[in-house]
Design a protein around this nucleic acid. Structure first.
Length: 567
RNA sequence: GGGCGCGUGGCCAAGCAUGGAUAUGGCAACAGCCUCCUAAGCUGUAGAUCAGGGGUUCAAAUCCCCUCGCGCCCGCCA
């Protein structure tokens, strides 16, 4: 199933599959043609035009000599170049959109997708979420989950073998407080997320007012020593919260494959082994042990009492992930960016890390009134967000088409999609302020907009009476509207968007592209009637709509949009 | 104080890696478009010293330096 290839070329190059590599082939073909005239020409100087002058443009600023006319006639030799216009130092090309359409359509009819990509044998681990199970997931935290889940889906689409990971912190003060609060206030009651959260907030208030954390500290120590009875009990309580988090994530279509508990590395003795393996580099300050980084900073591995610190357990976790993956991606809040750097340095200098290790940092989501906090109780939970978004979505759908049995399911899908899209579309590095009015705005740059265009496309296909099986070998040139050409060209760039998103680990690029493409489709829809036209035109446009549907399905499955065919 | 990130029309974002044509959209505002594949849509109008300053370049939102503002970090916490 997995082809053995050593190249990192994104799309397969093989003569058997011409349809799937035409995106690159056009660039390669044109580049090699250009190089006959300008030998030092760089591929970057051939790009899609964003200014409305043409389809593809060749920039010649960098190159000496006045051979534009020669270049022009060379490029016109290519059958798919319809025109070439010299404008100053630009050579503007118009590409045969029927040629592009046939590439995409045949890819879809033979392989089921455009673009088709090879299977990469690399195993990738994507860690995301990894929040302390001390409360329900809120909109600040879920940003991390949505980004991580989209990255994992993106890489799967690319053919990687992906495992998603969650590192469960069950050995710190927060976790121990949650457990202790349950033991103190609710020991004989059935633990529920609400009960636990209530106790958690209460014990923090008490610790703050009394100024004493002795009880928790005592327990942390026992835990660190690996007391099996205690570990079991704590995990049971943490498990209740974790299940709640899992359910919330499941509600927005996120499933994590592998949960690893921090205390596993304590119980198994791996942290001890790890520390002794570092003995040559370890320095001491009193009884506490640390490593010195290149810039002289000290990273403490153990406390004076011998207990381990988080960084050690995270190193152990990374070694575990490295044992089963070729590439590690970890999505973290930006407050952990320093930790990510530290970890990378330690793994490289002390553990000969050569595999690819990437961190994606997401900035915080706050409220207009300031930061969100589970402990303070001012966080907007994911549950709340889902419910309100669902209500709003349902309200709109009932207004549009009255009460119908299918409304609930459609409203739910639209709501989930809207949430994911809204959060994903903003670059991870930008801080966000959560506002209900924005979250519940279903106009414009939103998932409902994207879904709506898909509904339109589906209806066109549904209403068409053409039999698409007996395809014509040539595609009609009749009445090609500007909107139709633009749609085809924009769809054609999809593989490029995909590969850039993978290269930069920026799933938000796909959300932005999905919106742009839907907009282009809506323009097409307004201007270009598909059914009941001259049959040649109908066939061509049906092919376009078919490709559009396929790309939207593909991209939706990556960014977590749940499509519907009526709304 | 030091480090990392961010700063783009009234509001929210895209573009920045790899400099290139009049800076791209959404929301809000105003003016229009449903005997026609769903108007959750489309068209038009108005609105921008790309935080500010300097530099590099034929060319800077994009690269470099400085300043300002905001976020995050600077634990024998996780």
């Amino acid at each position: 199933m997995y082809s053995q290839t050593t190249t990192k070329n994104v799309f397969r190059h093989s003569n058997d599959y011409d349809h799937m590599l035409m995106y690159q082939n056009i660039h390669e073909k044109l580049t090699s043609t250009i190089r006959k005239v300008i030998p030092e020409f760089k591929e970057e100087d051939l790009s899609f035009d964003k200014t409305g002058h043409c389809d593809l443009t060749v920039r010649t600023f960098r190159y000496k000599g006045d051979n534009m006319e020669q270049l022009k006639s060379a490029l016109l030799e290519e059958s798919f170049v319809k025109s070439a216009v010299v404008e100053g130092k630009y050579l503007n090309l118009s590409i045969d959109s029927n040629f592009l359409l046939s590439i995409m359509h045949s890819s879809i009819s033979t392989t089921g997708q455009y673009p088709d990509v090879f299977q990469d044998p690399e195993r990738v681990s994507v860690e995301h979420t990894s929040i302390n199970p001390t409360g329900p997931i809120h909109v600040g935290r879920v940003r991390n989950s949505i980004i991580g889940d989209s990255i994992s889906r993106l890489l799967k689409r690319f053919g990687y073998r992906v495992t998603t990971q969650y590192f469960v912190n069950d050995s710190g003060k927060q976790m121990m407080s949650l457990y202790l609060a349950y033991e103190k206030y609710n020991a004989n009651k059935q633990p529920t997320p609400e009960l636990l959260l209530d106790g958690y907030r209460r014990i923090y208030r008490e610790m703050e007012s009394s100024g004493s954390e002795a009880e928790v500290e005592e327990m942390i120590k026992k835990y660190e020593e690996g007391d099996p009875v205690l570990i079991n009990k704590v995990r049971k309580i943490a498990g209740v919260m974790l299940d709640d988090i899992k359910n919330d994530l499941k509600a927005i279509g996120i499933k994590i494959d592998d949960f690893t508990w921090e205390s596993d590395f304590i119980v198994s003795g791996e942290v001890k082994t790890l520390i002794s393996s570092l003995s040559d580099s370890i320095k001491s300050e009193g009884e506490a042990k640390y490593l010195e980084l290149n810039d002289g900073r000290k990273v403490f591995l153990t406390r004076s009492d011998g207990s381990t610190l988080y960084v050690v357990r995270d190193i152990a976790y990374h070694m575990y992930k490295l044992s089963q993956s070729d590439w590690l991606i970890t999505v973290l809040g930006e407050d952990h960016s320093e930790h990510g750097k530290t970890l990378t340095e330690i793994l490289k200098t002390h553990f000969d890390l050569i595999k690819r290790l990437d961190f994606v940092f997401n900035a915080f989501v706050s409220l207009e009134t300031g930061s969100m906090s589970t402990r303070k109780g001012n966080a907007v939970t994911l549950k709340e967000l889902i419910e309100k978004t669902y209500e709003k979505s349902r309200e709109i759908i009932v207004e549009k088409r009255g009460e119908k049995d299918s409304n609930d399911e459609i409203a739910r899908k639209i709501a989930i999609s809207a949430i994911r899209f809204n959060i994903l579309k903003v670059s991870a590095s930008k801080a966000m302020i959560f506002r209900w009015e924005d979250a519940l705005d279903f106009n414009g740059d939103s998932a409902p907009f994207v879904i709506y265009s898909y509904v339109r496309a589906s209806n066109i296909i549904k209403k068409s009476e053409m039999n698409m099986d007996n395809e014509t070998s040539s595609i009609s040139d009749k009445e090609l509207a500007r909107e139709e050409r633009t749609l085809v060209l924009n769809m054609y760039t999809y593989p490029f968007i995909l590969s850039e998103a993978v290269k930069n680990l920026k799933p938000e690029a796909l959300a932005n592209y999905a919106f742009m493409l839907s907009k282009t489709f809506n323009d097409f829809y307004e201007k270009c009637k598909v059914n009941d036209q001259d049959s040649e035109i109908t066939i061509r446009r049906l092919m376009t709509v078919t490709v559009y549907k396929s790309i939207m399905e593909d991209i939706s499955s990556i960014i977590g949009i749940q499509l519907v065919t009526e709304m």
